[in-house]
Design a protein around this nucleic acid. Structure first.
Lengths: 255, 255
DNA sequence: CCAATCGTTCCATTATTTGGAACTCTATTT
DNA sequence: AAATAGAGTTCCAAATAATGGAACGATTGG
């Protein structure tokens, strides 16, 4: 865990509290953060001052609303999201299934947008969520455009948790999959992350591959057969290419 | 602007970049942040290291995806939001119009959730957004449960921007409105923030009013008449009370 | 080629953070 | 009622990190 001076320590703390599955008391945090009492106390105080953390009625720490405020501006302005939106909608309409847009960050995929069908289902749910690269369509599509050294670095850092019986259990089998994905131009996820869920995805990337994302169509296995995924793969690739074209148009060929 | 040591300065910077309406070059930031070049450079470097800012293809700074990641966990776990969700849905179904949940933060309202009708409309859009207290239903409902000193402090700090011809232009007229709201138990917004948009809202608050929020029903003026708002006011108040009851049940009477 | 603008690096000075210990507060036990 | 334990808060000399001015590169354009 590399740490950028004071900020790094504070952000780690913030992460710790945000990742917990409930409000944390001072002592709970003390046990997990590796800091002396006095130091920790002041650090938490600072985070609260800035609204990044809050104290609930029982004096336990919870993530602050300030984070939401900052994030909503981030999201509203994301170039990729703005450019991709109409394409995602169109893909949703053509397939009738849920469409996702996710970006590669380290060895995780962060979902940036999601377009669902008519159902007035939980919005936001997925947005901002971090998911593993090695068992999601978007993740594997993203990996397939990395150059050898970067791919190796990411794969080496992975811990392959077996979410389902189809999840890759070894770097070797993952790498084979990635290789096929690279040749095909699109990735499949056949119940590797969640039983009963299948998806097909294509990569989106900038000139020097300095920025890598992916677009996917996801649905329940009983409705989304492998034949359908095959059928949609061209559509997904075209969508991804359309997004890249628009991005280059908007931001210049350097993108 | 009070600043908490190192963190305060960095968060101010983050705010500056997040609030801008486009990517910022180093020099743009230098002009607005009141810092020497060397210092600013290192600060930005630290924010980038932590993923709170990112550099785009043209070496301009944009808010980082890390913020989204942190915020999504904040949102997913917000007790109020979890408890309120079914109530909001029910209110949406009963009225057919859009329902909002917003919390008071300083002299702003931050939207925590939004439930719309069938339309597969832009999700997230409103969530995390900051809106003025003095010209939104949720905002005025929130103000109506503040005690005198806090109300005074908030109102004194306000800058009353006239968004429409109905926006309050003086503290006096706002305070009269708040007083009526307090007596009635619900607030109206008749095109005060946006022409053509009306809404009715009720406050949600914890025991010591240490935590204050509001729930509203909003719709286009041509469909949502004052009569309808009057009709819905009881419904909105009941919803707010239901949420408070559930919150106390879940978190104890101290809430 | 020169001038100008933009971004980066350096390092002695200065300010902030650190961390151990002592202290307070509350609830529980003897 | 006194004693104990657990949680949270405050303090301050020592250690560490941030500051800011100036010098150095890099890129652009006349």
């Amino acid at each position: 865990m590399k740490e950028t001076g004071t900020l790094g320590k504070l952000v780690s703390l913030l992460d710790l509290v945000a990742a917990a599955d409930g409000p944390m008391r001072f002592t709970d945090i003390l046990a997990e953060a590796d800091q002396p009492r006095g130091t920790l106390h002041r650090q938490l105080g600072h985070l609260v001052e800035e609204g990044l953390l809050e104290l609930d009625a029982d004096a336990r720490y919870v993530p602050g609303i300030r984070l939401l405020e900052l994030a909503s501006r981030t999201w509203a302005r994301s170039e990729l999201r703005l450019v991709a939106e109409p394409h995602l909608r169109s893909l949703q309409e053509q397939t009738g299934e849920t469409v996702h847009l996710g970006v590669l960050r380290g060895s995780e995929i962060i979902y940036l947008d999601k377009v669902e069908g008519r159902q007035a289902v939980r919005m936001y749910s997925q947005i901002g969520n971090a998911s593993p690269v090695y068992c999601t369509g978007v993740g594997k599509a993203a990996l397939s455009v990395l150059d050898a050294p970067r791919l190796e670095a990411v794969v080496a850092a992975l811990e392959l948790t077996a979410f389902t019986e189809h999840t890759h259990r070894s770097a070797a089998s993952l790498l084979t999959d990635i290789e096929e994905t690279r040749r095909r131009g699109h990735a499949f996820d056949c119940e590797e992350h969640e039983i009963g869920i299948r998806c097909v995805a294509a990569p989106v990337f900038s000139a020097e591959r300095s920025f890598i994302a992916g677009i996917s169509v996801t649905g329940p296995a009983y409705r989304v057969t492998m034949e359908k995924l095959d059928l949609w793969s061209g559509l997904v690739r075209l969508t991804a290419e359309g997004v890249m074209r628009d991005m280059r148009m908007r931001l210049g060929p350097r993108w």
